[in-house]
């Protein structure tokens, strides 16, 4: 790989100080994202999974610039986003867009769909004059909405239709990267599958890269070339979708995989679940060792003392666990991996 990847995130940290006033008491620090590295090639998808509060959304927001990192860097096409002039930053903002979780609050209720879609086209001068309206029609077609949607207001649409409008708005900027922040979590299961298919089709047609954030491994797997599992602000395991399902080595990943039901009664009866005890530790002053040590069924004293680095276990697999070499023997996992499921949740 000689050319720089489309997106490279290096040792990214987002720490939020706690406490109101500047003089009252000792305040803690929420380490929402604590040293994350990854790269994403053009036209590919990186899935980011983890439970609520693990920092995956914060990470996604930092990538597009909605949050300012405490340290570390986000590099887009070889250019560090923090080290740019204002004009460059405005120009690059267009190249990364975001699809939001809540389709109801992500559209301006006072603007028609046509106005919402035309705005980025005009702001960036992507089309001129009558070309703007033509492009709006084209965008509506891309997301399978009828042309008549243009003159309607968001409140007239269903959740799934609104999410399509949100996707069209992101595409209006002609981005190279789209951060999908749990784009289907708020939708009905039947609609989820449609939106997932749409996202996949758009990637095939437009070659856009996705950073796909979700909390359901099964959903994330459908679109992802590679999946990163996050726990308490850190990536604990990363691998190609299939590798991860078959050869997960981190106890947390294994627990996530085992939590997904299988729509085949024979396999489902064989499924052995790893039930995690307790809650994730608070990201306020997190433990110094492995963030998962407190809940890990195979933790050893070293896990509480030292944070394990993300180590490679093959060409497309990396794990942050001191016992990664042994876990396949210690913990159960489904041999063939869960069959691909169609957006249904566990």
């Amino acid at each position: 790989m000689t050319a720089p990847p489309l997106l490279e995130v290096a040792d990214l940290r987002l720490h939020f100080p706690l406490g109101g006033g500047f003089a009252f008491g000792r305040r803690g620090t929420v380490k929402a994202v604590d040293g994350v590295d990854f790269r994403l090639e053009a036209g590919r998808t990186l899935g980011l999974v983890g439970e609520s509060g693990c920092g995956k959304s914060t990470l996604g927001r930092a990538v597009v610039g909605l949050e300012t990192p405490t340290s570390g860097s986000v590099t887009l096409g070889g250019r560090n986003l923090a080290a740019r002039s204002r004009a460059e930053r405005d120009a690059d903002r267009r190249r990364m867009q975001m699809i939001f979780q809540d389709p109801f609050s992500s559209l301006n209720p006072r603007m028609t769909v046509g106005q919402t879609l035309a705005e980025p086209i005009r702001l960036h001068g992507l089309r001129e004059g009558p070309g703007v309206a033509a492009r709006v029609r084209e965008l509506l077609g891309l997301v399978d909405l009828p042309e008549g949607a243009r003159d309607r207001y968001p409140h007239e649409f269903s959740g799934g239709q609104r999410q399509r409008i949100g996707i069209a708005r992101a595409l209006a900027c002609e981005p190279e990267l789209v951060v999908c922040d749990e784009p289907v979590s708020a939708l009905d299961v039947s609609i989820q599958a449609q939106i997932m298919r749409l996202l996949k089709r758009l990637q095939d047609e437009l070659g856009v890269a996705y950073l796909f954030i979700g909390h359901e491994l099964g959903v994330v797997r459908q679109v992802s070339d590679e999946i990163a599992v996050m726990y308490l602000g850190q990536i604990v395991e990363r691998g190609a979708g299939r590798t991860l399902f078959r050869e997960a080595r981190h106890a947390y990943t294994r627990a996530l995989i085992s939590a997904a039901p299988i729509p085949d009664p024979r396999l489902e009866r064989l499924r052995r679940r790893i039930i995690l005890k307790g809650d994730p530790p608070s990201p306020i002053d997190p433990p110094s060792g492995c963030p998962f040590a407190g809940r890990c069924p195979v933790a050893i004293p070293r896990c509480h003392a030292e944070r394990p680095p993300l180590e490679r276990f093959g060409p497309d697999h990396a794990v942050a666990c001191w016992r990664a070499g042994e876990t396949p023997e210690l913990l159960p996992i489904l041999a063939q991996g869960a069959p691909a499921r169609d957006g249904t949740s566990g």
Binding site: M98, F100, S106, P109, R169, A172, C173
Partner: peptide, 26 residues
């Protein structure tokens, strides 16, 4: 803090337009 305001920034609006077109009317 509404997502549509964040989206307005992402698609390239400057602060004046965000205030005038996206925040004030709502």
């Amino acid at each position: 803090t509404q997502p549509y305001v964040e989206a307005a920034w992402l698609v390239g609006n400057d602060p004046a337009r965000i205030m005038g077109r996206h925040i004030f009317p709502n």
